[in-house]
Amino acid sequence: MTLRISLRDGEQMIVNGAVLRASGRVELEVENRVAILRGREIMNPTDATTPARRLYLACMLSYIDEPGRTIHHDMVVALLGDLLGVLESPRARTVCLDFAQHVAIGDYYRALGSCRALIDYEAAALARGEKEFAQ
């Protein structure tokens, strides 16, 4: 199955660990299985400022850095354990378990999708906490 990707001028993507930048508008067709992240899916290490974001970064590195996958995977497991220890919401815990299932079978790309949901949950919880703290 062919994957079609459109990149805007200057947009980055990672293919099997290599960072690529589009020069002009680019249409690509990927015809085999590779680790691909588009610009909006790439997290800079300086943006990993919360527990869910650190989990996303470790998972992303597991996905794109095959030689270092074992180290990154161990970090994913540790961070997931920490996160599960503090989450109270049944929905957030379910998303964590979904994430863990994807990681367990090596489907890091789908795990990243689950982790984005955790980042959204975390952001909403932090916003609620800040609002309560300000009152």
Rank of each mutant, 00 (worst) to 15 (best):
V86K: 12
P67H: 00
T50K: 08
V30A: 09
R69D: 00
A35K: 09
A35P: 04
G81M: 01
D120E: 14
H102C: 15
S89D: 07
Q12Y: 06
Y121T: 03
R38W: 09
R38K: 13
R116K: 14
G17Q: 04
A125Y: 05
L80C: 03
A48N: 09
E27K: 15
R25K: 14
G68D: 05
Q101M: 09
E11F: 11
G24R: 07
V86R: 14
V15L: 03
V19H: 08
T46G: 12
R33D: 08
A124W: 09
E122M: 06
G10Y: 05
G10K: 03
G17W: 06
I14V: 13
V26L: 15
K131E: 14
T49G: 06
G129C: 00
A35E: 06
Q12F: 04
A92P: 02
L126D: 12
D47G: 10
A58M: 03
I14F: 01
A92H: 01
A78N: 13
K131C: 14
R40V: 10
T46I: 13
H73S: 07
E11D: 10
R38D: 03
L79S: 01
G85L: 10
T70P: 04
G81K: 01
G17K: 03
R93F: 09
A125N: 08
G24H: 10
G24D: 05
Y63E: 04
N44Y: 14
V26G: 09
L126A: 12
L37M: 06
I64W: 08
T46Y: 12
K131L: 14
G129A: 13
D9P: 08
M43N: 05
R93D: 06
R93A: 05
M60Q: 11
I119T: 08
L20S: 07
D65E: 07
A111Q: 03
D107I: 03
H102Y: 14
C96R: 11
L37D: 03
A78E: 15
T70M: 07
R54P: 04
G106Q: 08
L28Y: 13
L87W: 05
Y63G: 02
Q101K: 12
E11H: 07
L28W: 13
D120S: 13
R116V: 10
N16C: 06
I36N: 04
L20I: 03
I105P: 01
L20R: 04
L28P: 13
G68R: 07
A127H: 10
A123C: 13
V19L: 11
L118M: 10
R33N: 08
I14T: 04
T50E: 11
